[in-house]
């Protein structure tokens, strides 16, 4: 059964385009997770999926339930708000944990516990 046939054609196409664009961004984020070569670089990759990628899929979902069932599934917004507020927290905690672990092991290219005034370079 094709549920998308219950909404007008151009609306269905809009939903498809929104969700596809979002999924593409999420997928690119995962490619980065796999491809980038150090933890501090990889930590940037999933933010693609948790920001614009997720927003596009969420907007597509809201439009679908609005057009298809006549009621706006507005609690989808709550998913967006929750993820937007919580992802920075978990990523920050992770980055701090990684920094602590690297400092303890004396890894190269990691700023010291009291960074100098000019700032230190890491990575390449």
């Amino acid at each position: 059964m094709n549920v998308l046939a219950t909404v007008p054609g151009w609306v269905a196409l809009t939903i498809g385009a929104l969700v596809l664009a979002g999924a593409l961004l999420v997928c690119i984020g995962s490619v980065g997770l796999l491809r980038l070569d150090s933890f501090y670089r990889r930590v940037h990759a999933p933010t693609l999926g948790t920001t614009l990628g997720m927003y596009l899929v969420l907007v597509g979902t809201i439009v679908f339930f609005w057009a298809g069932e006549g009621r706006p599934a507005l609690h989808v917004i709550l998913i967006g708000v929750c993820v937007t507020v919580t992802t920075p927290i978990s990523l920050m905690l992770l980055a701090r944990a990684a920094l602590e672990r690297d400092r303890r092991e004396g890894a190269a290219g990691i700023p010291a516990a009291n960074p100098p005034e000019t700032g230190a370079d890491g990575g390449e």
């Binding site: 940037h44 937007t84 990523l91 920050m92 980055a95 890491g122």
Partner: peptide, 28 residues
């Protein structure tokens, strides 16, 4: 500010030294 910096892809808040008021971020 922490949420803004971390939610923007390409920058992430790493640590903040409240005594010296210094912020450490990592930039892709």
């Amino acid at each position: 500010l922490a949420c803004i910096i971390t939610a923007t892809p390409g920058t992430i808040w790493v640590s903040h030294d409240s005594r010296r008021q210094m912020l450490l971020i990592h930039v892709l």
